[in-house]
Design a binder for these strands. Structure first.
Length: 573
RNA sequence: GUGCCCGUAGCUCAGUCGGAUAGAGCACAAGCCUUCUAAGCUUGGGGUCGCAGGUUCGAAUCCUGCCGGGCACGCCA
């Protein structure tokens, strides 16, 4: 907030310098980058603009900085501006600069951090989209949580977001699924045959076969021929598995707005239509009896087959129609969250979007790297074939929703993630998610106490700036003021892990401040003269808002009290 | 072989658009509870930012080449 204000001040100074001929008119004013210097001696905020434009302006950075400072309009929040080092401009703020900001935070409340910069734009986030041939495993979990939070973040900057799951409910894999179930069914009926190696080996297939037999469905299908039975089994199993997936996702707090079935594309006849469209635009050609899409014209490594020489369509063909449909539906921005093993798919899909006449930049791919699930240092196998993998459902049951989500979000999605179950469960006391939640609970507890003593927080009272005179309080105020800018940046970069880093810093700064109250009464909130307590409570309320809203975007609860965990008693010996 | 991701403290990882003396947690060492939750806090040790060049006022960050780990390279999905 203060950053916006100061960047305007700098922009005005820049314009004034150009007016005065101190900066050539050919130099474009870059985005003003204001940062919090590591050392307090370097002011409250600093900008490097003079260093950035020095070369283009053909003047020394220091000279430019001096000129900018000389022509800088005054601002009531500034008490000093200086040029330092190679040409940084350091800003010293008046001690009470943050008061308006706190007032604004309290007024914005639940909406604090949300902006409307993308108002009126529709965005679709497609994620999970796992084939309904088996339960979700921990790799899908990362995709699910990341996609869910990206959706929340994009909504926070104004997009009208739709969270979507694309279901491949046709094709080879569903046929294999049907055959797998049918084979297990035959086994249950006493037939003796080796279970095919290419079929799904997991025990859930047997469960489905048992259910089929148990509810009499299998009997009704006995009049059908082999292929029809297999197809029926496939549909039945896919439907059941998809329902299981939906349940597992719900257990993680992930709910999609829509499940879009691939079969719907076939029913609509959407694929021939989009093929015609591409052919018309000259992006297709026939070769070796197959139909090709000239994706190399848009930067792909090689052209891609849409219709195989045997006349059948590729998976890619359906996906083209699916993506074309997204734009027809009115989404101006599309985000697909995929596993990194599908990275090779990105150039051809962007090529499709471009070939259809859209900006390829409107389609973003977020690729999640591998998740290594370990338990006490040992890698847990995730082979679907052998059916030994660790399911997401089991992870949630064992670790819990909040911890699971936080762990997935803690690391950049561009890096592989080691998810240590032993750490997530056994070391709950040092778990960062509890640390952040605890900060929230502690603040709530202080408010409850204030209420109980009859001197509760009165929101309507004006905040008296002079009452917040501690350095730590200014640091906290500055931190919560950075929140909206951070959300904007994170939504732009599609990098939610930065929010966990930020929340941890907020929690840490608060915990440190809080604990000083044990020794130093000035740091205590309760028991102060009324105006001071009111001011401190207002600050704490802002902290509470930021933690609550931040955790909310992450889909993690912000409890008002934390129940003690067994084993903590050791600390009191 | 080609493309993408990763390499930062003993371990797990942050590090924004190139910025001032590279950070946190865990682990280790020493302290702090009559008071708003000690699930906490304070202090300390610990670094060839994989290696070598380059770009420039300045590089963990950008470029090139290597080394190491992962993933992908189909008329499969």
């Amino acid at each position: 907030m203060i950053e916006q204000r100061l960047s305007q001040v700098v922009t005005q100074a820049f314009a004034a310098c150009q007016e005065a001929g101190e900066i050539p008119r050919t130099v474009v004013c870059p985005p003003i980058h204001l940062e919090r210097p590591r050392q307090s001696a370097h002011g409250d905020l600093a900008t490097n603009i003079a260093l950035v434009i020095a070369k283009a302006a053909k003047r020394s950075p220091r000279a430019i900085a001096e000129a900018l400072v000389a022509r800088m309009p005054s601002d009531p929040h500034l008490q000093g501006v200086s040029v330092a080092g190679p040409g940084f401009i350091n800003f010293d703020l008046i001690p009470t600069w943050f008061v308006e900001q706190l007032t604004e935070i309290i007024a914005a409340d639940q909406r604090y951090g949300c902006t409307n910069i993308h108002q009126g734009e529709r965005c679709q986030v497609e994620f999970v989209s796992a084939n309904p041939t088996g339960p979700l495993h921990v790799g899908h979990g990362r995709n699910a949580i990341l996609g869910d939070v990206l959706g929340n973040l994009l909504a926070a900057v104004g997009y009208q977001v739709t969270k979507e799951y694309y279901v491949n409910d046709t094709g080879v894999q569903i046929e294999t699924l049907g055959r797998s179930v049918l084979c297990r069914l035959r086994e249950l009926q006493g037939e003796k045959a080796a279970f095919p190696a290419e079929c799904y080996q997991g025990s859930y297939i047997i469960d489905i076969a048992q259910q089929l037999q148990g509810d009499g469905t299998a009997v009704a299908w006995q009049t059908l021929d082999e292929r029809a039975q297999s197809l029926a089994c496939g549909r039945y199993a896919a439907d059941r598995i998809l329902r299981g997936i939906t349940d597992d996702l719900a257990a993680c707090g992930v709910v999609h707005d829509r499940y879009f079935l691939e079969s719907a594309l076939h029913v609509e006849g959407a694929i021939p239509v989009v093929i015609e469209q591409l052919r018309h635009a000259g992006h297709l050609y026939e070769q070796d009896d197959a139909l090709w899409f000239r994706s190399t014209a848009f930067g792909d490594d090689k052209d891609r087959v849409i219709r195989k020489s045997d006349g059948s369509l590729t998976y890619f063909a359906a996906d083209i129609a699916y993506h074309a449909r997204k734009y027809v539906e009115g989404f101006s921005r599309v985000v697909d969250v995929l596993g990194a093993d599908h990275a090779g798919y990105v150039p051809r899909m962007k090529a499709v979007v471009a070939a259809l006449g859209h900006d390829a930049g409107s389609l973003d791919y977020v690729l999640t790297q591998l998740v290594n699930l370990t338990r006490g240092g040992e890698v847990v196998s995730m082979s679907t074939r052998r059916g030994e993998y660790e399911t997401l459902a089991r992870l949630i049951a064992e670790v819990g929703r909040d911890v699971t989500r936080y762990f997935y979000l803690m690391r950049s999605h561009t890096a592989q993630l080691d998810f240590d179950l032993a750490l997530a469960t056994a070391q709950t006391l040092e778990n960062p998610v509890y640390y952040v939640q605890y900060a929230h609970a502690r603040i709530c507890s202080i408010f409850a106490k204030a209420e109980a003593t009859g001197a509760g927080w009165r929101q309507r009272d004006p905040l008296e700036a002079s009452q917040l005179d501690l350095e730590e309080e200014r640091a906290l105020a500055r931190l919560v003021g950075e929140y909206p800018g951070l959300i904007r940046a994170i939504a732009e970069e599609l990098a939610p892990h930065r929010l966990t880093v930020y929340l941890l810093e907020v929690a840490r700064t608060f915990q440190s401040y809080y604990t000083r109250g044990k020794q130093d009464p000035r740091y205590r909130v309760l028991g102060q003269a009324l105006p001071k307590m009111q001011a401190k409570l207002s600050l704490l309320h802002c902290l509470r808002i930021v933690i609550r809203n931040g955790l909310g975007l992450l889909g993690i609860s912000a409890p008002e009290r934390m129940n003690r965990i067994e084993g903590d008693a050791a600390h009191h010996d």
